Amino acid sequence: MTAPLLKVDDLHITLEGDGASYNAVENVSFEIGRGDAFGLVGESGCGKSITALAVMGLLRRPLGIGKGRIVLDGEEIQNASAARLRELRGSKIGMIFQEPMTALNPLSPVGRQIAEMFVLHQSASWSEAMDRAEDALRQVRVPSPERRIRDFPHQLSGGMRQRVMIAIALACRPDLLIADEPTTALDVTVQAEIIDLMAELCAAKGTAILMISHDLGLVANMCRRVAVMYAGRIVESQGAEAIFATPRHPYTKGLVDSLPRLGERSKRGRQRLREISGVVPSIAAYPSGCRFNPRCPSVTDICRSAAPDVTALGDGLVRCHHHE
């Protein structure tokens, strides 16, 4: 079998604070093949974004990798030097951050920020790099790219800024694109345009995608496989179709059930969305046993006393005492 492009093996991310050490992420393992699309979903605070930052080598104190391996194209990078990580970021791994207004430099024209990728990673001259930056904006369907390369981020709409982020992330044809909530704060029609654009460009360049979102429907439409995180752990991983058709963990089922569906109406004529009761526990107050047990509708005594083991599900997995 072909080796995966990215392999995350038993990753633990620690958080130091108040004289104590906490596990923000535990036992996280997944693989992404070349040109494949993999989704990581869950509520805010479950550990998705810091897992992505660990892959990028962007964790900063008080966060750090406690143990585990991150293997990119056969190279272990969890302990790579800062210089090596700078070489990899942009050339081998690109990332679309959650909020482009804070990720982009407000004091630099967007064209120069794209051109910088070609100068740093492909030794292009600034003149050549600016020409290529204009082409990059054209590829992400920014109108009048010859004018927009001189604009600053605040002069662009949210959708335009997100297109600039995609242009920067894909400028040097990376092997892996990490998209962290790439449609946050965008209206529905612009969201659809951005997702279609990402999928089209990545397919053309053969780029693998790690899609991070709290929106299970969005991820399932784009990704072949999906992993569901809760309180720092992957609680279920299956093919995208199976996640919708036969969710095996109560948390996954709650996420699926909370999605709005066309045609469903209550007796009063309005659709009432289902919800998962309670909130994600604090990292300093994870419950004993299964971490989902205070919110789980199927909880029993064993759920409160013992953490569930990983159970194989064909080509997936689940962490639940009652997954049957």
Rank of each mutant, 00 (worst) to 15 (best):
K48G: 05
K267F: 00
C303A: 09
S21V: 09
F38S: 02
L59N: 06
A20C: 10
A227N: 04
D9W: 02
P100E: 14
R319W: 05
I234M: 13
G94H: 10
K48H: 13
P100F: 01
L120G: 10
D36G: 10
Q155E: 14
S277I: 08
R148W: 09
V299E: 13
P109F: 01
H322F: 06
I283N: 08
R291M: 09
I96T: 04
F97C: 03
D315L: 06
P281K: 12
M222F: 01
A199Y: 10
G111E: 11
G45R: 05
S125A: 13
L210F: 07
E236W: 07
I212S: 09
E324I: 10
E134H: 02
L85V: 07
I93W: 05
L85D: 03
H322D: 07
L255V: 00
L259A: 12
T300L: 14
A306S: 14
D180P: 00
A306I: 12
C172H: 11
F118P: 07
V25T: 08
C303H: 12
V228R: 01
D180V: 02
R270P: 02
L88V: 13
S305D: 14
L201K: 12
L273H: 10
K205S: 11
S123N: 13
S125P: 04
I276T: 10
K205P: 11
V8K: 01
H121V: 07
Q98N: 06
K67M: 12
A204D: 09
R60N: 05
R60Q: 09
E236I: 05
L273C: 13
G47V: 00
G158L: 11
R138S: 15
L201P: 06
G239L: 01
Q78H: 09
P281C: 15
L59E: 02
I149G: 06
I195S: 09
I93M: 11
G232F: 00
H12G: 05
F292H: 08
D187A: 15
A133H: 08
S81D: 03
D36A: 15
L53G: 03
G217C: 01
D131A: 14
P62F: 06
G314S: 03
A199V: 08
R61G: 04
D301L: 13
H321P: 05
L156D: 11
A307G: 13
L88W: 00
L201I: 14
T207F: 03
V142P: 02
V55N: 06
S49G: 02
